[in-house]
Design a binder for these strands. Sequence first.
DNA 1: GACGCCTGTTGATCTGAATCAACCCTGCCC
DNA 2: GGGCAGGGTTGATTCAGATCAACAGGCGTC
Lengths: 233, 233
Amino acid sequence: MRATSGVKITSPLLAAAGPETRAALLSRASMLAVPRGATIIAQDQPAERLLILLQGSVGLSTAEDGGAATMVEIVAAGDALSIAAALLQVPHSVSAVALAPCRLLAIPAEDLRAAMAADAGLMRAAMEQMTRQWRLLMEQVVDLKTRDATQRAARFLLHRLPAQRGAVEIPEPRGAIAARLGMTPESLSRALHGLEAAGLLRLHGRRVDVPDRAALQRISLPRAGASQGARRV
Amino acid sequence: MRATSGVKITSPLLAAAGPETRAALLSRASMLAVPRGATIIAQDQPAERLLILLQGSVGLSTAEDGGAATMVEIVAAGDALSIAAALLQVPHSVSAVALAPCRLLAIPAEDLRAAMAADAGLMRAAMEQMTRQWRLLMEQVVDLKTRDATQRAARFLLHRLPAQRGAVEIPEPRGAIAARLGMTPESLSRALHGLEAAGLLRLHGRRVDVPDRAALQRISLPRAGASQGARRV
DNA sequence: GACGCCTGTTGATCTGAATCAACCCTGCCC
DNA sequence: GGGCAGGGTTGATTCAGATCAACAGGCGTC
């Protein structure tokens, strides 16, 4: 399936819908392209449409009353940005900003809700998507509690690495990645260059070569005697 | 509504169901009581029933392949323990252990799925519950990234504090709380006693008195110039 | 094509929290 | 009632990573 702009639409969510449901959704959907740095979703705004990221990279952050904001997650192409808010008709609980030029598909929230009521597969896919995002967050919490900066950086790259070996393109600015990983840009830089010095990867600007995926994986395992939270209850 | 054992059943999930749905679910549900330390859910086991925590406290932890385990969340009475797994018929992605003596309601997963298909209110409540747990995790990620040990401890207490002021009973062992907060028991102890020394709370074993909730809240705000993740992208 | 800003890197220093270790207290079991 | 074990506290030391600061390279702009 292709949309007007010629970008392939690959989304687990839409793939799960029946053909006619999908067609109905797409017929009323619109495509949008945003440059790096653009705000895609503003926190606390009503969710009028579901956004599916087709291309690019988006950072999710939350600002609390206190004024603290952090990059909570970086979502990759294929994921939906606001399922929960669109489904439940509640305001967005996060802001989303483009960390790279993005293409998104926008589906009116009411269309989505109607389609979901009619199509059980779509409903299930939506719940799977929500569950997946929950699990990612859980993984991040574990990372923050049990792994040091270098291990977190290594794991981030591993997550991005497409096949068993090779190179990754990292389009996001380092500062955004550092924030996602819970460290300063300085620390990320040191971690990355430390891994390079250890021969585990090669840095070429925003491209990273990983000669031996298994070796990197070994590094990213939490130290055996890890303390935090690993202690007996 | 009351169950056989005389424990009041208060759960947003069941409250959202229609009367007849609720009656049907309860008729086939069973009650179980477990002592502190008992394992309630084992990771990777199939989810045959939905567990609703009526009383007590349960710690959720994940063990990865690497062998790292951490307390990811502590769930309070009223919450469901395994909605996603029960709905999607997938194995539990977390383990759950009782941090205090617990009473739980167990509803066969297939009953739940049937009820949900028939009762839109219940379905919505399930999604709200999942969203809520997602948001809690997001909050925890922000905490870990932007707040120091003392602030996290203060916030934990604030979350537990029922009304505007007063005292909280903390039934969980300190080690479990420390793990949930991403610090060692030693650090938690120091944080708590530091707050006590500052006159913000009074420690009496597992009871904590908070004379001035607002003051504690002020402490728990992230420092203005917080760095991690707060930098410009 | 040169300038200037922004992103990323590197170095020096400082600090919050982990680690290691001893000790105390409380509840339990015999 | 006494001893024992485990959870909790306190102290001394160490270390990872934040902070502060300076600088380099790249890219868009004029």
